[in-house]
Every structure is written in structure tokens, then in C-alpha cells.
Amino acid sequence: MTTPSSLRRPRTVLAMEPRVRDALFDAAALDRLAAVAETDPAVVVADFAAAEHASALAGAEALLTGWGCPPLTAAALERMPRLRTVVHAAGSVKHHVTDACWERGLTVASAAAANALPVAEYTVAAILFTGKRVLDAQRAYRERRGRLDPLALLAGAGNYRRTVGVVGASRIGRRVIELLRPFDLLVLLHDPYVTEGEAARLGVRPVPLDELARSSDVVTLHAPELPATRHLFDRARLALLPDGATLVNTARGSLVDTGALTAELVSGRLNAVLDVTEPEVLPAGSPLYDLPNVLLTPHVAGSLGNELGRMAHAALDELERYGRGLPFAGLVRAEELSRSA
């Protein structure tokens, strides 16, 4: 975006861990931050009660938050009498936006749409790799030093007319569906809030959750972490998955009963690609670290490395919209948090 003279620069305070500030804002992003907001990027608040930040917080009209932002409780907000808006340079705001924010009438924006992109890309890569049985091929190739017959080893592998079950038409779930569109796959969807007409527009077939579990070669989870979704895939639902099916979880570990899934994976009946677990981190003795049918990664599907720049600029876009009196693109509504990540 350009920065004409009509832009008002709100007094803004960064609230996140200092290392997050350093990772989010390169020189170009810091220059842009200075152009759209009146701020001191050297001031990074990780404790709203800290005396050294009292003056900065008292004058803040906007908070630019990131990972490590402390909760915005009523007591914290008392220290920010001029605060009008919170812009989050990451995904979910549930860790720091409290009911007190809505009671104060604050507006909230998030860069969740920007953070959804790498998660969806990771997920699609996982779906395609698991269909191709890349881990099996890599392991056998290494162990046999090239002496293998791919036709025999990978009989039945491939992504031609496989069935992928998407659980949750969230931002990430919808982006996964979009990215899968060019491939020769049947995509099923379970989401209680999606109508048949909307599913048709997405190009997926809506089905009940148990039917999705029974019918899918790969199930990928994109539902929010809510009391109703805890252990959505418990022992009984995991048992519905066909032999050889793969469960991909880039959402929240609590969606899956870890004990039940571990038993299925140890038996070799199922495969899994897990970027999140419950607990996170798994105990050192967990067999999931070593099982050949499990790809386990340490919550890296979301924005990392140069992808953090996308989130930073998405948040700066929102600050600029605020300064121009324009509506947020990534507006967060209180009523939506009850069914979102």
C-alpha cells in the first residue's frame, strides 16, 4: 500500500516476545511500521504490569500483538485507557483477547488468513507424499541400497482417484480444498456449518463424520479446539478408518485421542502425519518418534522463516486500514470465536 498524507498514524505499542519482534520485522517491515504507526519498535511489552512500560501503554491507541502477548485482562486494559484496537500479527487471538476486550468495545484484527497459507501448503504436501508412499520408498531405498523393485514395493500407491476427507471448512480447510482442486482426487467434507449449496460451490461432497472416516484414504483435520471437538477422533472413530489410511493433523493435538492413535500406529494399521500432538511436546519415550509409519514434526506447518514476513505485512496492512478509517480485512468478531481456532 502507498502512504499518502491522508493516512493517520495511530500511537502503537508492540506486545509480544522480543524474539518474535525480531523474527517478524526485517528492515523493510520496520520502515513500513514507522510509516503507518507512531511507535518505538525498541519497546516490546511482554508484561502489561511492568512499570517501565506504563507510559507507553497509557498513550497507546493500538496494540500490535504477536506470539507471547500476555492476556488482555480487565486489569491490563486499565493501564491502556486510550486503547481502541488490537492487531494480531499471527493467527488465533484466543490466547490474549479476553471478554474484557469486547466489553471495552475494542476492535480486533488478525493475520490468520496469511498464516493459513503455509499450513495448507504443508497439509497438501503431506497428502500427496503419503499417497505416493514416499516414506516407505525412502526407507526401503536406503536400507536396500537401491536393490528394490518399485512396482512391487509401491503396488497400490499413488494419488489417482484417492479419497481425501477434510474435517472443518476453516480458512485452512478451505485453502486445502482449493489447492487439491487440480489433482485427480475425490474430496469429502465434514463441517456442520457448511450447507450443501456451499459445499457444491467448494467442489466437495458433504458427508457425516463417520462416513468420512470410513470412506477416506487420507483424513486431514482443520477443526477448531473446542470442548465439542476434544477427541473428535477417539478410539471408536479411528477404528472406522480403512486399513492403511493416513491421519494428517495440523490443527490441534486435542482433536485426537493420542493413546488410541498410538495403539493404531504401533499396530501398523494406520499411518499419520502429525504436526501437533497432545501433549505437545510428546514424552521422550513416545513410540511416535520412531515409528516408520509416522511423520512427526514440531508444530512447524504454520508461518516460519521468510513466511513470517507475510504475517507482518498482513498486520501492517490492517494498521494502515485503521489509520485510513477503513474496515479491517481480517476483522475478528466475538461471536465467531466460539467456533474458530
Results as ranks from 00 to 15, higher is better:
S254D: 11
L180I: 10
C69P: 11
R82N: 14
E320K: 07
D217Y: 01
G105A: 05
K132S: 07
R230A: 12
Y193G: 01
Y160N: 05
L265I: 10
E52F: 02
A109T: 11
F25L: 11
G302W: 13
T98F: 03
L33D: 01
L128P: 03
L265R: 11
L282R: 13
S92L: 08
T297G: 13
A42W: 00
E198M: 12
F233D: 00
G68V: 04
A236K: 12
R310Q: 13
R171H: 10
L247N: 05
L274G: 07
A223D: 02
R8H: 15
E17G: 04
S5L: 14
A113Y: 09
P279W: 14
K132F: 02
G168Q: 04
A76N: 10
G309T: 03
L57D: 03
A140N: 02
R162D: 11
M16A: 11
L7P: 08
R139K: 10
P182I: 09
A329L: 15
L240T: 00
E264I: 09
E198I: 02
G105M: 08
L128W: 12
A76K: 05
S6I: 13
G68P: 12
I172N: 01
H96S: 04
A15R: 02
A37R: 09
H190M: 02
L209R: 06
L282N: 08
G323I: 07
V43F: 00
A75F: 08
L153P: 06
S286M: 09
M1C: 01
A15N: 06
C69K: 03
D99H: 08
D243L: 03
L180Q: 07
G330W: 06
T2S: 15
V273R: 11
V44R: 00
A100M: 05
T3K: 05
N115F: 05
V97H: 10
L238R: 07
R201S: 14
L202E: 01
R162F: 04
L77W: 09
E320C: 10
R79W: 08
V97S: 05
Y122P: 06
P227I: 12
V273E: 10
P206L: 14
L24D: 03
